[in-house]
Design a binder for these strands. Structure first.
Length: 164
DNA sequence: GCCAACGTTGGC
DNA sequence: GCCAACGTTGGC
């Protein structure tokens, strides 16, 4: 994956939604707690500083894209893996051989409205882009999306919700 | 609360 | 290396 890419991250708004990111110091937070190798690899190997990131609310009513963020750091070691008090603690990780890395994410702007999963599924332009999010059984919490999806979803957010 | 999908673990 | 059991994710 050599070309500049765009990304989508999932978060549960009850624990950490886009408003939490927006309220973080410098609107930036370490994207800690990712404990899936493929998602880690995207952060460690493929994310570049400045890449756009769609911030998606999962386990929400309704689920959907809430805001736009960007990659704000090079990858670095996720310290929570060493912390027995953390829910992200990984007993198999050692300082010598860390398992988990992360990047910082910075909020760029909230979308004027949530673009729901249902809308994403129904959009013919996005269908062409084959977003991993929309594939059956997609559970990754960090995944690539086509660059063009960013502008498309922003345009959707700028127009009224269907049925509104 | 249900359940499909999928990742991880661990016995063999 | 296989694969059954188990845990988690996440929409509904």
């Amino acid at each position: 994956m050599s070309e500049r890419s765009a990304w989508l991250v999932k978060s549960e708004p009850e624990s950490f939604g886009f408003s939490h990111l927006w309220a973080s110091p410098k609107r930036t937070t370490a994207w800690e707690g990712v404990r899936n190798y493929q998602a880690r690899n995207y952060m460690r190997d493929d994310m570049k500083v400045g890449d756009p990131v769609l911030f998606y609310h999962s386990v929400a009513s309704p689920p959907g894209v809430a805001g736009l963020a960007e990659v704000a750091s090079e990858p670095y070691v996720d310290a929570t893996q060493f912390d027995p008090e953390s829910s992200y603690y990984d007993p198999k990780a050692t300082q010598e051989a860390p398992r988990w890395q992360l990047v910082d994410l910075r909020a760029v702007r909230a979308l004027p409205r949530l673009v729901t999963l249902e809308e994403l599924r129904n959009d013919p332009v996005l269908a062409e882009l084959d977003l991993p999010l929309l594939r059956r059984g997609s559970r990754l919490s960090v995944m690539p999306v086509a660059f063009e999806a960013i502008a498309r979803i922003e345009a959707m957010a700028a127009s009224p919700a269907p049925g509104a």
